[in-house]
Design a protein around this nucleic acid. Structure first.
Lengths: 105, 105
DNA sequence: CTTTTAGGTAAGTCTTTGCTTACCGTAAGC
DNA sequence: GCTTACGGTAAGCAAAGACTTACCTAAAAG
């Protein structure tokens, strides 16, 4: 289910860059953090937000935790936007037909 | 261009509902506000955020302002997610090939 | 011209959130 | 066993954000 918190996960500049990097290649927390100016715990917290939103998933590898993009989560957002787009299209076509009353309160 | 602020626009519960309603039918500010428990100025502020993100546009109709979904903005987000999805897919295929070194720091 | 209707904007408050440092648990290496 | 590497979590703080009320402008109605 795609909702406000799913979008909130990508609403931060750093989380945005995190998911971009993970889309290129799955990475450990430390290796990910090395690309940023913020602390490693901050990255951990961002990853939790992304994880809770279902946009990334973890795999344990020894002492390291490898994060990767959860493609299903991305697909769900796409579907959500598809619906929005289609609805808006239908509403537009509808408004074009009945030009007289654009808005019935 | 789709970035963090575009997603931030949909990161709020109320803005989420606003765009859903606008996707069904373009609405004036007041008529939109009547469906919510928050004040009209609050709705105005939310509409500004959505507008700045390029997700809605306005049309003046007498003293009223009719807001509608900007389909191009939605399409841009879809494209962004498409790229993300494809990149993640490529990274996944790549990781499957070279199973030995999943991560090169 | 005056009044109403519609809505954007400002100022102030309260909540949320992103960051830091400090701490703790767990898995590999010796 | 002990130690080191890797990260998740807690507490506290400062910045951002979502509200409110109050105010102001612009278009229609009379």
């Amino acid at each position: 289910m795609t909702n406000a918190i799913t979008f909130a996960a990508l609403a931060d500049k750093h989380r945005h860059e995190i998911i971009q990097r993970l889309a290129q290649k799955p990475l450990s927390v430390g290796s990910l953090a090395s690309h940023f100016s913020i602390s490693r715990p901050a990255i951990s917290q961002h990853l939790k937000v992304l994880s809770d939103a279902g946009l990334v998933h973890v795999r344990q590898d020894g002492t390291r935790r490898i994060y990767a993009v959860n493609r299903q989560g991305i697909a769900d957002m796409r579907t959500y936007l598809d619906t929005l787009w289609n609805d808006a299209f239908a509403a537009y076509a509808d408004a074009a037909q009945t030009l007289s009353k654009q808005e019935t309160p």
